[in-house]
Nucleic acid binder design. Sequence first.
DNA 1: AACGTTGTTGGTCACTTGGCCAATGGCCTA
DNA 2: TAGGCCATTGGCCAAGTGACCAACAACGTT
Lengths: 214, 214
Amino acid sequence: MGATMSTVTVTRTRKRPEERRAEILDTAAAIALEQGLERITLRAVADRLNVAPGLISHYFPVADDLVVEAFAAAATAERAQLFAASGTPVQRLAQFIVRVEDARSRDMARLWLNARHLSRIRPAIGEALAAQEELDRLQLSEIIDAGVASGDFPTREPFAACVRIFIAVDGVGSYVNDTASFEHAAYEHFVTDTAEWALGVAPGTLHEAVSARQ
Amino acid sequence: MGATMSTVTVTRTRKRPEERRAEILDTAAAIALEQGLERITLRAVADRLNVAPGLISHYFPVADDLVVEAFAAAATAERAQLFAASGTPVQRLAQFIVRVEDARSRDMARLWLNARHLSRIRPAIGEALAAQEELDRLQLSEIIDAGVASGDFPTREPFAACVRIFIAVDGVGSYVNDTASFEHAAYEHFVTDTAEWALGVAPGTLHEAVSARQ
DNA sequence: AACGTTGTTGGTCACTTGGCCAATGGCCTA
DNA sequence: TAGGCCATTGGCCAAGTGACCAACAACGTT
């Protein structure tokens, strides 16, 4: 009987390995988004799934690996949202900006901030971070190149523009955890402003496109 | 003799309360800069000072308070460095940018990133963060206002320019923990570029001033 | 020189974490 | 359908944390 009278023997269900693994990953990603990467613990994940902690260890022998993969999964899912647009390059870029600045992206911004800090002490997260950044740059560069080709974006340094836009995104994202995020036009439209400046488009062009898509 | 044979009885020295308190704060700030705010523990600080953990508790009954005050102390010290310049507004701003982008500021950038993330779960850090940001804005605004008055900065929105410059600083600072911080001109000069754009000065003006002060 | 104040000490406590293990029982295969 | 593989269980462990405490000793006061 051991030390504890186990309360109720739950019906234990056995799932297909891939399915269970994906389930664990999704749960870990959800915890990361809601509470932060540090809160991904064997018990936290196990509790959400009504499962024993040991089972998580079974699929992820090293807890760190689960954290890294959960971040990658969340970032990948978010990227699919950010770049799921069609239309002209201006419209696609505007849609990207709308979604980046949308309130629903706040959780994701928190997660990025989280990962950026954590990569200080956990090299594996740093690698995953760099990989995700690279993928994001590829997506945005694709839009920018299309705009340069179509003549919408006069810039002569498309990659530099891409880099600048992401710095703007990350800069604004820095304040996502501020309690009293004070409202100021310079904050709210910084990404749009930076994009116009970096791409060399006439001021107001992107603002219009962004407003139209909001 | 109890459970442990104490190795060597160190001569215990008694310092003036203010002195001891400052010493603890400095040590905590040093730990924060080198290893992060999470590593400020009673034992970590105590060990550095060759003192018992209980003593730290004596001066900071709540460990959180020590963390918050250590961050504020580090930020205050850094601000003194960043804005310790004389000359024309352009020169002072250039000096600020040089120091922000200097390699020696990397530790401090890590600390800011650290605090920004931590404020997600620790409101007290968020408050300290907001307070330090406010002080930084005051300092930079003072320079900008002087530049506007002297006619060096044509901008009609000095405060917006200040906000934009700090977003640029924080955006670049986001990557401070990247393992392979890839070198790119758009990265390295982003703050200078943004400042020129936000202040409405002719492109190249600030770059020259920055180069001259490096 | 005796005394009270208080800085300082080592140790304990309750709690959480990641990693580990033997036992159990559901599922697939022969 | 019988057997074996392995997903799953539940509890244990050492390590690390912040908070706390009673006793000790250095200091300033009288």
